[in-house]
Simulated assay, not measured.
Amino acid sequence: MEILAFGVQADEKPLIEKAFAGKHEVRCLEVFLTPDTAAIAAGYEVISTSVNADLGAKVLETLAAGGTRMIAQRSTGFNNIDLDVAGSLGMRVARVSYYSPHSVAEFAWTLAMAVNRKVIRAATRTRDFDFRLAGLLGRDMHGRTAGVIGTGKIGEAFTRIAHGFGMNLLGWDVAENPACVELGMRYVEKDQLFAEADLVSLHVPLLPATHHLIDQRAMVLMKRDAILVNSSRGGLVDTRALVTELRSGHFLGVGLDVYEEEAGLFFLDKSLEGIDDDTLARLLTFPNVLVTSHQAYYTEDAVGQIIDATAANVDDYLSGRRGDNVLVPAAPEG
């Protein structure tokens, strides 16, 4: 069987080909799955998609009409998939429920320290042989307070690093993580965390209940010199409200690896044509804001685990097994 993989990055292609070698042929495409590209999948029973694929009703209906019966998404998040429609069409949808949490946690800390210590500004200066220190004053993390929103596997990994810095630890989640409590974390209400934390890092999934979890009200509660980091999902932060707060001088720094309107932008080269997203364009003008293009997960370890799990999901489907990663089972035949 030949499998069609959408949205494959150059670094991923050899890993995907290796994972499926000896089992199935795989056709890797750089283009992302959208309403305009869905017809390419005609004749492919199994496809694999990336986190920024459009798997809304229209695309799913096109895929089903073309014979697609199984979608293996190469990510943990699945907020881009209309699972109800997929189920009604008799499609199986599987995700990757686990990969290295250290990849995202370490990158979240990379963003935090980069904005704290003005690393981008400093590097730009030294390339121009400007070696002044004015404007590069950072601060120690030791003794300050980290507020972790979401203390699952990634939040726990982030907390362990914060503990290594010697920080005070505040957490918020629907359930306490005993490992974080053992590290000294105190679980508090969101408002208290926002008010007391010097660094707020987001590690919750994007659900209706968490959409715009960081809205203007939440931001106003935060310290004027707080650092905000989001390496989870863009929709957790109300970006327009963030721009308003940044214009007022709020936040020592903001590190974003995700953006709520990133589909159609992130993972693509827009350097020649520019972008027509005024909110993102304005966000990128602030010197204390660092935006990266959804790369927190992008390590050899994590990507390798994601692809291996994707291959296993396909094997399960073809063998008639239902693995733990299945979100929607295929409708029974007959």
Rank of each mutant, 00 (worst) to 15 (best):
A41S: 06
V59W: 06
V59R: 11
D36C: 07
T37A: 00
L63Y: 13
F32P: 02
G56S: 12
A38P: 03
L55D: 09
A21R: 15
F20Y: 13
T49A: 04
D36P: 07
V31S: 00
D36T: 12
A64H: 12
V26Q: 06
C28K: 12
T37Q: 01
A41D: 03
A64L: 13
L60G: 08
T37E: 02
R27F: 02
T34I: 03
A53Q: 04
L63C: 09
G66T: 12
P35E: 05
I47H: 01
G43L: 05
G22F: 11
K23W: 12
L33D: 00
H24L: 04
A38T: 13
G43R: 04
C28T: 09
G66H: 15
S50C: 10
P35G: 10
C28W: 08
A21G: 07
G67R: 10
T62G: 03
R69Q: 07
A42K: 15
E61W: 15
D36E: 14
H24M: 05
T62K: 09
T68H: 13
A39P: 04
K23G: 01
R69I: 08
L29S: 08
A42Y: 13
D54K: 12
I47S: 01
A53F: 06
Y44C: 00
G67F: 10
I47L: 04
V46R: 03
V59H: 09
R69L: 09
L29A: 02
E45N: 00
L63F: 14
T49I: 04
G67P: 04
K58N: 11
T37D: 05
H24K: 05
V59P: 06
S50P: 01
E61P: 10
G43S: 13
E45D: 01
T62Y: 02
T49W: 11
R27G: 00
K58Y: 12
V31Y: 05
F32Y: 11
N52T: 15
F20K: 11
N52H: 14
E61R: 15
V31D: 02
